[in-house]
Computed example of a mutant assay.
Amino acid sequence: MRLSIDLWPGYYPAVIADQKGWFKEEGLDLVLNMPGNTDKMLARFSAGTIDAIAVAFGDAILVSSQMSDLSVILVTDESAGGDAVLAMDSQVMNNLKGKRIGTNLGGFGELLIRKLLQHHNMSAQDVNLVNVDASKVPHLLSSGKLDLGHTWNPYVGLAKEQGAQVVFSSADTPGLIPDIIAISGEFRRTHPEAVKIFLKVWFKAQQWWLDHFIEGNLLIAESTGQRPENISLDGIRLMSREDNLASFHDSTTEHGLPQVLKSYNDFYIRSGVIRVPAPNDVLVSEFLE
Score class of each variant (00 low, 15 high):
His255Ala: 13
Val72His: 06
Met93Leu: 14
Gln207Glu: 14
Arg270Asp: 14
Leu257Pro: 11
Thr38Leu: 11
Ser68Met: 10
Ala171Pro: 05
Trp202Arg: 00
Gly175His: 02
Phe287Val: 12
Phe287Ile: 07
Ile5Gly: 05
Gly48Tyr: 04
Pro154Gln: 06
Met239His: 09
Ser123Lys: 08
Asn153Ala: 15
Ser184Phe: 03
Leu112Val: 02
Ile180Asp: 08
Val63Asp: 06
Asn121Ser: 15
Phe187Glu: 10
Leu261Gln: 11
Asp59Glu: 13
Leu238Ile: 09
Val127Ser: 05
Thr173Tyr: 05
Gln165His: 11
Ile73Gln: 01
Val195Gly: 06
Met67Gly: 06
Tyr264Glu: 02
Tyr11Met: 15
Gly21Glu: 05
Ala134Thr: 06
Lys136Thr: 09
Leu96Gln: 09
Asp234Leu: 13
Glu161Ala: 10
Ile16Arg: 01
Ser71Lys: 13
Ala80His: 12
Met122Gln: 08
Asp59Gly: 10
Leu117Gln: 06
Leu158Val: 11
Ile274Met: 14
Pro13Leu: 05
Lys204Met: 13
Arg100Phe: 01
Val284Trp: 03
Ser142Gln: 09
Asn104Trp: 12
Ser46Val: 00
Lys97Trp: 08
Met93Phe: 04
Ile180Phe: 03
Glu186Val: 04
Gly175Asn: 07
Ala80Phe: 12
Ile50Glu: 08
Ser240Cys: 02
Glu222Tyr: 02
Ala52Glu: 09
Glu254Val: 09
Ile53Gln: 01
Leu199Asn: 05
Ala43Glu: 15
Thr253Leu: 03
Gly81Cys: 09
Ala124Thr: 06
Phe287Tyr: 15
Val15Ala: 07
Ala205Leu: 12
Val166Met: 10
Val282Pro: 05
Ala171Cys: 09
Arg188Met: 10
Met1Ile: 14
Gly107Asn: 12
Ser79His: 09
Leu3Met: 09
Ser79Trp: 13
Phe203Arg: 07
Leu112Pro: 00
Ile101Ala: 00
Glu289Tyr: 06
Ala278Ile: 04
Glu254Phe: 11
Leu42Cys: 12
Gly157Phe: 01
Pro154Cys: 10
Ile231Val: 15
Asp234Cys: 08
Thr173Asp: 05
Asp59Lys: 01
Ser247Cys: 12
